[in-house]
């Protein structure tokens, strides 16, 4: 049965290492792990094989001859339509979308959250409630009005337009994140600064910002993975030349022309998944915190 450990997951080891309970427990976990790891494994081995070896047939078998040709091709030669400069184009587009989107959305949302926590004004809670409810509205109902708005300000099809869209749709969850964090900062600190004569921006930059660095990291993880993985906004608000990586990837893999090169496809897929994966493995617990924050929205 269960060991009585008062705190933390690392309780004392069960007495018998190979009890039925343990075999069942770890057996299930390992079996499930196989299901979760399988796609990653298959992607990696496929991308390292040559096409003849793939045609012979087994997606699970490790490559007999390891070749990185597929990776090179996916990065710099794969074709979408008439452009044959590979996924690198989409990668740089995504970088150009990502950086301003992350900076702008976090800057805007952190100031919003700050205003909502210590500088409430008449109606601020109402706007916040609308914002949070808005997070649940299907994007589809807002897609076309945004097309019109972007056209009006001349940013339709432009990377700048997509940056705005990401800022707008990142706002509910990020504002909530920052509002909750700033609310937890003691009121006394805020009041002391007020007494010392600090105003809205002074308190934000001198006190709140330095104290909120961890939450900024969480917000960054959330936004970088979210924006990098976006497909819908990319496909609607950009032109083929400025397609983000996910859209270009889909066009490369699902193009109907030419012979299917599964190894190139898988290399391209892995390349696109690499950025969020690196962030995931590097950030560890912070990633979990980010999604947990995303989970309690509303």
């Amino acid at each position: 049965m269960v060991d009585v450990a008062m705190s933390g997951p690392r309780g004392p080891k069960p007495k018998k290492a190979f009890s039925t309970r343990n075999i069942m427990l770890y057996g299930t976990l390992i079996l499930v792990s196989v299901y979760y790891l399988l796609p990653l494994y298959v992607m990696i081995v496929t991308s390292l094989k040559g096409m003849p070896e793939i045609r012979l047939g087994n997606v699970f078998s490790p490559p007999l001859e390891i070749t990185t040709a597929a990776w090179t091709k996916a990065w710099s030669e794969a074709c979408t339509g008439i452009n044959c400069d590979g996924l690198s184009r989409g990668f740089w587009n995504s970088v150009q979308i990502l950086i301003p989107s992350v900076v702008l959305s976090i800057a805007v949302a952190s100031v919003n959250g700050y205003a909502l926590s210590h500088w409430k004004f008449k109606g601020s809670e109402l706007f916040f409630t609308i914002l949070i409810i808005g997070a649940f509205i299907p994007y589809q109902t807002m897609l076309y009005p945004i097309v019109i708005l972007l056209r009006e300000i001349g940013l339709m099809g432009d990377l700048g337009g997509l940056v705005l869209v990401h800022t707008v749709f990142g706002m509910p969850i990020l504002t909530l994140l920052f509002r909750n964090y700033f609310t937890s900062i003691p009121e006394e600190l805020f009041k002391a600064a007020r007494v010392d004569g600090a105003r809205f921006w002074g308190i934000y930059f001198r006190i709140m910002l330095p104290m909120a660095l961890p939450i900024f990291v969480v917000a960054m993880i959330l936004q970088v993975t979210g924006i990098w993985n976006d497909f819908l906004f990319g496909v609607i608000y950009t032109k083929p030349d400025t397609y983000p990586m996910t859209v270009q990837l889909n066009n490369i893999v699902n193009s109907v022309q030419g012979v299917k090169e599964y190894n190139v496809n898988m290399a391209a897929t892995l390349l696109t998944g690499l950025v969020p994966l690196v962030i995931y493995f590097a950030s560890g617990k912070l990633f979990v915190r980010g999604i947990a924050a995303g989970a309690v929205k509303g």
Binding site: P39, V42, D230, P276
Partner: peptide
């Protein structure tokens, strides 16, 4: 184990879809 179960969530739906399309 937690890292293994959670990593797919970091991947986009496009990557997910294409990986499973191949499998």
């Amino acid at each position: 184990f937690r890292t293994i179960f959670l990593y797919p969530f970091a991947l986009s739906f496009v990557v997910t879809g294409l990986a499973w399309q191949w499998i």
